[in-house]
Simulated scan of single mutants.
Amino acid sequence: MPKWLAALFAASFVFYTDDYVIAGVLPEIARDLGVSQAAAGQLITVFAVTVALVAPVAAVVLARAPRRVLLVASLCAFVAANAAAAGTPSFTVLLILRVAAAAAAAVATPALFATAVQQAPAAKVGRYVAVVALGVTGSIAVGVPIGTWIGGVFGWRAVFATMAVCGVLALAGLLITLPRKTFGDPAPDWRAQLRSLGRRPVTFGLLANMSLMTGSMMMLTYLAPFLTDVAGAAVDARALSFGLAGIAGTLGMWGGGAMTDRCGPDRALLIGMGAVAGSMAGLWLLWGMRPVPITAVLPVLAVWGAAAFWNSPAIQARLAALSGVLAPQALALNTSGTYLGVSLGGLLGGLTLARWGSGALPPLAVACTVLALMLLSNASETARKTQARK
């Protein structure tokens, strides 16, 4: 891997770890700042909503801007927002700072993908783009357990301070390794983008990913209160649970990539979605048997973690193949869809938690997964019919 590509991966990993890194310490944030856990979960929601809204706009509006400048400016803003978040005593101010950090991540996202495409050899464009995408999605699998451990040992404010330090390291990596000739491209024709990205297979694939992320990330956002209710898990047990899910997610992501290469993205997605639904059913069953030891929950969490991130490589490969030269824009749009799903998950999960308790989260996640499966099946069938007519 070229050093500059490793730096792009590190930057994408740091940007998007910042979203979910606090999921494991939401109870502590809520208690310290005097808000409910459902309200604290909206710290994740506002980050995701901001990314979802800003990333596709930035992909077009800032297409001509030098990408090195965009990335450096975004990381500087990111570091400042996290450093300020580490010291604020106000929940309202913390929400505003989360929006600022998310805007920096959203502006950087199209530049990260486009730089990978621009600098990659012609035969390796897909793999180089996948490396950047792995930083975005892998951050959720790995960043959460790391943040949970840091928060459990040093306090939740240390999580934001750590993210600021990581942002400085990522900035240094880009300044040292990224070629200076990373200019922007002429602004892409918006009509061509709409024609390509608005086709039914692409649209339904994006919606399927959004629904899948809504269900999976709803559970991840409120996994801490769920574990407390089901197994009486303290922060150390929650850190172990998030860590196991993160390791399983990383392995699942590589497994999903291998299955995508071997059998195609559609079949890989069907397998992954089925496993997500099955693991959610298992968590619902454990809820009905509560209280249970944490050791009974961990195997189900491992399956869920692996299945949830199994789907990411298949989604990326499917969209890149369908979008052709507009792959960077499609992947930026997919990032928006992913984080819109994350934000919906945080919002719906918070409402569900407040009204019906954490036991209602697994069946709602199953419903979202079934909807994603239906959308994916429709998208695949439409793509086959379109190909047959050519």
Rank of each mutant, 00 (worst) to 15 (best):
M1P: 14
P2E: 14
A6L: 15
F13A: 10
F13T: 11
V25L: 06
V25P: 11
P27E: 11
A38I: 00
A38D: 07
A40K: 03
A40T: 07
I44H: 02
A52V: 10
L53P: 09
V57G: 00
A58I: 05
V72E: 13
L75E: 06
A86R: 08
S90G: 11
S90Y: 09
V93P: 00
I96P: 00
L97S: 07
R98K: 01
A106R: 05
T109E: 08
A111T: 07
A123R: 13
G143R: 03
I150F: 05
F160W: 01
L169E: 02
L174E: 05
L178W: 03
P179S: 10
K181W: 03
A187G: 07
G198M: 10
M213S: 14
T214K: 11
M217H: 13
T221Y: 08
D229A: 15
G249W: 01
P265T: 05
L269T: 06
G272C: 08
M280K: 01
W284H: 14
W287Q: 13
P291L: 11
L301F: 02
F309C: 08
A321H: 12
L322A: 15
L333M: 15
T335Q: 13
T335E: 08
T338H: 13
G341N: 12
S343T: 07
L348E: 06
G349D: 06
L353T: 08
S358T: 09
A360N: 03
A365E: 04
V366Q: 10
A372V: 08
S377E: 11
A379Q: 04
K390W: 11
